[in-house]
Design a protein around this nucleic acid. Sequence first.
DNA 1: ACTATATGAGAACGAACGTTCTCCGGCAAG
DNA 2: CTTGCCGGAGAACGTTCGTTCTCATATAGT
Lengths: 195, 195
Amino acid sequence: MSHDESEDELRRQILDAAGEMFYSRGIQNVGMDEIRDAAGVSLKRLYRLFGSKDELIAGHLALSDERFHAGLTKHVDAADGQHDKLLAVFDWLASWFAEDDFRGCAFINCYGELGATNAAVVDAARAHKQAVRDRLTRLATEAGSGDELAEHLALLAEGAITTAAISGSPQPARQARKAAATLVQAALGAASHRT
Amino acid sequence: MSHDESEDELRRQILDAAGEMFYSRGIQNVGMDEIRDAAGVSLKRLYRLFGSKDELIAGHLALSDERFHAGLTKHVDAADGQHDKLLAVFDWLASWFAEDDFRGCAFINCYGELGATNAAVVDAARAHKQAVRDRLTRLATEAGSGDELAEHLALLAEGAITTAAISGSPQPARQARKAAATLVQAALGAASHRT
DNA sequence: ACTATATGAGAACGAACGTTCTCCGGCAAG
DNA sequence: CTTGCCGGAGAACGTTCGTTCTCATATAGT
């Protein structure tokens, strides 16, 4: 019952290797043999820990979601003021888009490729996007606005992600930020006039 | 040099059949044999007309682009006033999202699946998205605003497409329209105050 | 009628892939 | 040292798929 590395460490190591290849090349363009090589484990171990490629995909999406929220939290927490915290979301997008291996949203890419045949992928994508909207709703509420502003900002962020991916430029983050500032101004300005 | 059906008709017939399957199921989940069956042609004819699956993919994207612009034109032309023409874009999105086989943007789905291995797909997606932004820029200019508003509306539209696909609801079109109205108001209101 | 070309139906081929199996070496227990 | 189990390396298997080939048939030209 004792190993050189714990099963959790191995799982993480495999998900790291597989995830990077899944994201950069598309899931169906990565074979289990390549994952075995990149992770430095045997096929037997790989299948003992994950059972099937579909489980690996599910794990990859779970890890992506985790990292997404961690990165977002870090940027938002660093901003001062509830107004700025809302806009910090878009600053975080800018830094994400500037990463040299940026290739859009893992969930959207996965949805396009596998959504029609793998229900778990659709569920994971839906849950992830819903969680993002929920976070924006919380931020908007704390800033004194409501659901509607949050949904609008979510649409801007979503659009910026795919536009940045396809155009290959990080600029959409800045444009989205500017549009977001206008919407925040319109929403909070109106609210503060009322109070 | 005479056939029952012209080569152009056959090409269209094949692209229709292939395109529907590509879009609904993902490209790598559709085999050439299935396309042959659905289009009712022989493999030989299929390969004479297209040469390879990659050419079929390129043709599919070209046809998707054509239909996209035709549908958009129809909706925008039906709107009265340059202000309403800008917002008509989002009404058109709403009717698109309500189609029962709606599954997001063919270009984005294709990009996620094949972008890393097929440069033609990336080029087609980039060109398509750029063309959409150009159209919005034209509409925004005619409405008396500039590039910036057009980029912002493009981000909203883009975000609405993927959000509608993944959430499975057409509602993002309405939300995007509302946000767009706010942005248009802010941009044109400011402009008209200046004049 | 005869030849030559073209076509359709589908078999065949070669590669890739997910998954399982074989074989062998190492190691712990007795 | 022997025995029995566990794990690694990778061969093997069965399937799928893009593409090409075979062969029988139909048709056009002379």
